[in-house]
Nucleic acid binder design. Structure first.
Lengths: 213, 213
DNA sequence: AATCATTTATACGTACTGTCTAGCCAAAAG
DNA sequence: CTTTTGGCTAGACAGTACGTATAAATGATT
């Protein structure tokens, strides 16, 4: 009747290893040209050298597995550097670093992130989960923009949201994925985005009488 | 043996009607909250009041159906106005109109386009088909940027590709979809994008010594 | 040695895609 | 009017995938 006390102890390391193996296998399959088509739970389990049921025990569902992959990417992909960014006293420099960090992150898991985002559009629940994680990026940008406007003294009201949302868009994966093509390497993308970002926070109205109709 | 000559004549109108009914039904289902989950071929056929086999006869596969939906959107969504845009002698004004036309297009089919793009990421073949259709947008921007640089005399070499790709990104569905949130209506998005677009073609280097690291 | 959590093996149920075949129907061709 | 043609339909089938249920095997913990 009374359950006996039981801690995993040494076993915990093993279970973490299987979990990692599954995530790694899924990531590998997601990278393949056929992408999602090859990433059935069955295929992932085989690639990881594990039974199909184990995947369900660890992640509950395919959705859970995909969320696990994303979190794994975020953990490895240099997101930890964000702490340092906000320690920078110069907010404009912080913005620069912020952009660099995310360019790096998108680069590190480009194909996988692209597929995850795609699936996030198809599966509303997964999309919501991914969007939740992205909101931290927006929150970070709010802090930076606030500091900039305090320092430079530009307190226009609606302009604040415009600046934040614009920067959020400019630092999004989709923008990166669209710009990083042809001969343009990640640092070049960073430079491009940086220029646009400065234009966005400068907030000057268009001159020359070419108002959008 | 020798097949008799046969033209559809009046029947053609009927077949076009069924085709339209199927596309409309699919679009309707794609709009529903559950989105793709409810858009099985079977469900589409039922919604259109048509047999499942008919859908296969018309579109060949689910992929074909989705391509059909996209083409249908482009045909209805004001893409025809693009002709007029390029008749505008002032290239900067043309750019303005170009942005407006696409903001309008993205607005008109926002949810459906979002789901199609998502599926385009999952299904490489569909993705290629969609990308092909998008290349016309890039081509149009090349023309506009060329005219601008001729008029304003800014012949920097690499800057040309940068300007085109940046404008392509700024006028993409993803940018629109990211910016059009909260209280921001489509015209506001147009204005935001327009400002950034001008910054992009102006091509000034960032000042103030905040180079991206 | 008893207990517990992880992992496995196997079988089901359900849903969807895509193919095939045979047949129905109305418009076109003769 | 009769025959032909092509779009549409009906039903069955194979293949694949997700998710669930159940019982059992494994090996560390107590």
């Amino acid at each position: 009747m009374s359950p006996r006390a039981y801690r995993l102890g040494r076993r915990e390391a093993d279970t973490e290893k299987t979990r990692a193996r599954i995530v790694a296998a899924a990531r590998r399959l997601l990278l393949s040209p056929r992408g999602f088509a090859e990433s059935s739970i069955d295929a992932v389990a085989r690639e990881a050298g594990v039974a199909r049921m184990t995947v369900y025990h660890r992640f509950g569902s395919k959705r859970g597995l995909l969320q696990g992959i994303f979190d794994d990417l975020a953990a490895r992909g240099g997101m930890s550097e964000l702490r340092d960014v906000f320690r920078n006293p110069d907010p404009l420099a912080a913005l620069s670093e912020f952009i660099s960090v995310f360019t790096g992150f998108w680069t590190s898991g480009r194909v996988v992130i692209r597929r995850l985002h795609g699936q996030g559009v198809i599966d509303p629940a997964l999309g919501e989960a991914l969007r939740e994680r992205e909101e931290r990026r927006r929150e970070g940008l709010r802090v930076i923009v606030k500091r900039i406007s305090e320092k430079e003294g530009r307190p226009r009201a609606a302009a604040f949201d415009d600046a934040v949302d614009t920067l959020f868009t400019l630092t999004s994966f989709e923008t990166f994925d669209s710009l990083a093509r042809g001969k343009r390497r990640p640092p070049d993308v960073t430079a491009l985005v940086h220029r646009l970002a400065l234009a966005a926070i400068r907030g000057e109205p268009p001159r020359g009488g070419n108002k959008p109709s």
